[in-house]
Amino acid sequence: MNFNGTFTQVIDELVQQVMPSLVVVRGRRFGAGAGIAWDANGLILTNNHVVGRHSPIVLLQDDREYDSKLVARDPDVDLALLSIDATDLTPLRPASVSPRVGEMVFAFGHPWGQRNTVTRGIVSALVYAQNRRGEKLPIVRSDASLAPGNSGGPLVNAKCEVIGINAMIVGGDQSVSIAASVATDFVRKAIAKSALSAKTPHPTPNDVI
């Protein structure tokens, strides 16, 4: 076994690594939720239900505040992609392999408005929830405690990789997160779509054959 420092140190390092990527997403009319810096150039991932009717305000860890632009939203996976005018964000990396039942997880967010909270648990179950389109949505259930305000925040594994986006869409007494695979898929499609619509009205010279 290769120990890199003590247990407490390792957990502290993990928390320090995640925190810069954790943002507050404040709706214009509703309460606040959490969000994740998804790339360095201003993409913020959060829950659709956190966003509300207008583009929300995004608050970074260093207290910089941004008006965001809504890039894409999908109520059926409860995800929304925002963009802010920043180029120095610290993004989190999605896990490259599927989560396993029993592995340790840490949920980050702002439950009941308490900023920058960490709760610990394990992956309790890997199941599917059905959305309104009747599609099966992969869900990570955990025994880490979540509350309103955790929505949109990351669920990370022991390697500091995102394995889910915390959400409270299916109720029940277990904490649920939307699987990271759904999130990466959503972001990929959203970016492709916005690139396409950006191209159509203002074709750049490169596009002209």
Binding site: T6, F7, L14, V101, G102, A158
Partner: peptide, 17 residues
């Protein structure tokens, strides 16, 4: 290299499996 946290996490997932 695996941290002590990853070791524990893997061990728990192995135990569950």
């Amino acid at each position: 290299s695996k941290t002590v946290l990853v070791e524990l996490s893997d061990a728990l997932a192995d135990a569950a499996e």
